[in-house]
């Protein structure tokens, strides 16, 4: 059974559809990149998958026993987070809260898991550092470690490299690839960065105003869509 199956999904604001008749499936271990122009509904789709936003019509089915509190989410950073006084450990640990009762008391297992995930993302030595003193790349790794505390199956990422310098950007992509390949975590990522998306992704969901392409990377690269979009991308660069 597929991890996620979207059938005939329509998305948008105030009942008006931005995206119509969206079909795609995500299997365990896939690396799906969602690309497309601004305003094509990419972030809206991620919000719909996390349940932050209701879909206008259609169905999204979660398979393989995936439930809402097993999704790891890396949202776009808000301005107030940039100077938030919290230690890295506090932030990472808070990823465990989704599966806790209303009081949210951490168990020893949660603490263990937080430390393990910090090790995976190479932020262990930042444990007691203040979140606001970290560089953009370090902050994203910390948020990724937090997301891993919430999931063992699926990561949803909304523009994870926004504002990062080129080195931090490529490190971030390598990390995601590593999580996908070695830790068997399914990745769904919205990205502006088409070239990087094509390098690592196994599947592509290309969204336009009124059409959508979904397929694996090889078949995508041979389409007219890819030629036009990538051609445009090079011109812009």
């Amino acid at each position: 059974m597929s991890l996620i199956k979207a059938e005939n999904v329509c998305l948008g604001y105030d009942g008006e559809n931005v995206v119509e008749n969206l079909f795609f499936t995500v299997e365990k271990g896939d690396y799906l990149c969602v690309i497309g122009e601004n305003g094509s509904g990419k972030s809206t789709l991620i919000k719909a998958l996390t349940g932050l936003k209701k879909i206008n019509s259609g169905t999204i089915t979660f398979g393989d026993g995936l439930s809402k509190n097993q999704i790891g989410y890396l949202p776009q950073q808000t301005p107030s987070q940039k100077d938030f006084p919290a230690s890295v450990y506090e932030v990472v640990l808070s990823g465990c809260l989704g599966r806790k009762n209303i009081f949210g008391v951490y168990s020893r297992r949660d603490r263990r898991q937080a430390l393990d995930n910090m090790a995976i993302l190479g932020v262990s030595d930042l444990k007691n550092k203040c979140y606001r003193t970290l560089s953009g790349g370090q902050q994203q790794r910390v948020l990724l470690a937090r997301a891993l505390c919430a999931t063992k199956t699926l990561l949803l990422l909304d523009e994870p490299v926004t504002g990062l310098d080129p080195v931090a950007t490529s490190e971030m992509y390598e990390l995601l690839y590593h999580l996908n390949r070695d830790h068997k975590i399914t990745v769904i990522m919205v990205s502006h960065d088409v070239n990087a998306s094509l390098k690592y992704a196994s599947h592509i969901l290309h969204m336009k105003k009124d059409e959508v392409y979904f397929g694996d990377k090889q078949s995508y690269l041979s389409t007219e869509w890819a030629r036009v979009f990538l051609g445009d991308g090079e011109k812009n660069d």
């Binding site: 996390t50 349940g51 932050l52 809402k68 509190n69 999704i71 790891g72 989410y73 949202p75 808000t78 987070q81 938030f84 919290a86 506090e90 932030v91 808070s94 990823g95 809260l97 989704g98 599966r99 806790k100 209303i102 009081f103 949210g104 008391v105 951490y106 948020l143 937090r146 997301a147 919430a150 949803l156």
Partner: peptide
Amino acid sequence: LLFYNKIFAVTFDEAFCEATGV
């Protein structure tokens, strides 16, 4: 004090909390 951990998480990142079931 009872809800301290949750209040921290929600203060830090509402979107993440909603998405992960808090």
